[in-house]
Design a protein around this nucleic acid. Structure first.
Lengths: 339, 339
DNA sequence: AGTTCTTAGGCGAACGTTCGCCTTTCCCTC
DNA sequence: GAGGGAAAGGCGAACGTTCGCCTAAGAACT
């Protein structure tokens, strides 16, 4: 095996030049005689030389690492996002000479400490933040430190920072417009508590689309709660217990888990999903296409978001002047049998 | 902001000692006068010093990084594993001073090249391998290079390497034993092609449990195919079309996606799942508890596997003599309404 | 009184790069 | 024939650590 690491000096010795010359030649910073070039390349090839990344980073005073951490989902929830998002970040980062460094996600006061530590120890050149919400302490901290970062998700509008987000309102607008087009008028939405920025964004789309369809959105069609199966089921049962003329004919939920809860409730009430009651979810988790009936849902371009986050961050880190520091990606409505 | 990084020399200047002394004191390799100690600690605190990880690694000649890559799932499949596995690796690694370095997963000939590059560039001290199968070229390569790695999953029995795996046969044994205990005799299994080591392992458990229950396992109850919804559905339709007296009363599948396909098939034939036909899946994906009816499945201790992989790898990297280089973890059967 | 031991800390070197500046050679031009 | 410039490459230094060895001074022992 390559028991002993091959260094510039080994290559230089074999090629008969100084090791600094090898470095410059390999980095294209120097013109050498063609035969010297050939000797160096041969030596590199034969010894299997690769520059030591640690030494290089040391010299550069940078790590070429992008810090990323994510909330681990509680059991019963899926993080189908992670695979796509992380994979695309890793790929995009690799293409421009960076790596992604995952680190544990902590809640509360300690959370910012990890970021501080990673910065001070020179472990990362920048961060990508996930699960961003209002008043995010990480954003506050990083802004104060003037340390490069890109948020996947928006936060307080008065803060000035780079972000990539999915246009949730556009997603719900599409869904509602579709339902209206199918003749629905009594359309309910299972939304999230008002402290969720993502939830508010998506709810906003519902309101806009209802207004655009000239439908007065009744307040008892707007229910808020945690995005779980149980909450989705309970809310739906509540809606289905309204008097016949007031019972909604369609329900939009802000995630798929709630939609599955809604489907369970509809089944309990003996309704046929898709005809008696239309249901549309959000996220398009991989399995929802196999539900009975297959669930219509709003799909988010996650991989694209990961790419964009890295692209923006690298531009920031390398001080490039770039056009836009905000990227809003469009989700798409996937229609299946449930609506 | 900490525009300029704080180094040992800054701390030393403020504490009035040489920077090497600061280093030794912080690493507990030197006794100093209590007041000197206090001055040093005060300086560290005031300046917010953290050792530069790159410089430290450079000196150590190691990266303290664990390379990891995973197969990105095709759309329609979930990688519910990744979140748990990666989170637990990151956590465990962090606890012992390591980080996890994700890198792109490539198929084919290039795959080994990435590993070679990461080794030569000193990027990682070891690897954790996922999606291991027979004749895995990565294992062959790393064994030849004598480079530390731990596989999550077994491979060719004649190869001697450290691995952590889930006892798939034990999982299917439990499932079949349960079905037999419930009075089932005609039990089919939807298995995978014989080139899948994981699939063969799980199938083996089926065979053993059938034998233990003194049931002759009929070859037409053992179907093999890709682990998709469509294949699961098609195989199940085939089984349900057997003559009445030969039709299986229970089906075990090697993953949840096939089980969901099986459920769809049963529904198409007008059967009530759980009573007319028992179905048990494998993996216990987060959403299967919300299916109708909720799917029984075999749950794997993924987080524990991630922890163990890191534990073994670090022991290998640091040359510790350790007891066992093979860890076999036990899955558990989760019974819900489908069986 | 000389020797050894212990305590407290200093100093140079090294890890593998990259960067800036220097030297040598050769060719061309006036 | 002196001067200039390009081409080809060498050399020292630095990034921030850690490590091994050295020194100075006082205490303790013979």
């Amino acid at each position: 095996m390559a028991a002993t690491k091959v260094t510039l000096k080994d290559v230089a010795a074999r090629a008969g030049v100084s090791y600094q010359t090898v470095s410059k030649v390999l980095n294209g910073e120097m013109q050498v005689a063609p035969e010297t070039m050939a000797r160096i390349q041969a030596a590199v090839q034969e010894l299997g030389y690769r520059p030591n990344r640690i030494a290089r980073n040391m010299r550069a005073g940078r790590s070429f690492m992008i810090g990323y951490s994510w909330t681990q989902t509680e059991p019963g929830q899926v993080n189908h996002i992670l695979d796509q998002f992380l994979s695309s970040m890793v790929r995009e980062a690799g293409a421009v000479g960076y790596y992604v460094l995952p680190f544990p996600f902590l809640e509360g006061k300690e959370q910012v400490e990890i970021y501080r530590d990673l910065i001070r120890s020179g472990n990362v050149d920048g961060f990508v933040l996930s699960s961003v919400n209002y008043n995010d302490p990480r954003i506050q901290f990083l802004l104060k430190q003037k340390f490069p970062f890109v948020a996947f998700g928006r936060s307080n509008p008065e803060w000035d920072f780079a972000w990539v987000d999915i246009d949730g309102a556009a997603g719900t607008r599409q869904a509602i417009a579709y339902l209206i087009g199918r003749g629905h008028r009594r359309i309910a939405i299972l939304a999230w508590p008002p402290d969720s920025r993502v939830g508010n964004d998506r709810l906003q789309g519902y309101l806009e689309a209802m207004e655009a369809g000239q439908i007065v959105s009744e307040s008892d069609y707007i229910l808020r709660g945690e995005g779980t199966f149980e909450v989705g089921r309970a809310m739906t049962l509540h809606l289905l217990d309204l008097p016949a003329g007031r019972r909604p004919t369609a329900i939009l939920t802000l995630n798929d888990t709630m939609a599955i809860g809604a489907m369970a409730a509809a089944r309990e009430r003996g309704l046929t999903i898709g005809t008696d009651l239309a249901i549309i979810g959000f996220d398009d988790a991989p399995m929802v296409q196999y539900l009975f009936p297959p669930l219509s849902s709003v799909r988010q371009p996650i991989a694209e978001a990961g790419r964009k986050c890295v692209e923006l961050l690298v531009a920031l880190v390398e001080g490039q002047t770039f056009t836009e520091k905000h990227v809003l990606l469009q989700p798409s409505l996937i229609i299946r049998a449930s609506a």
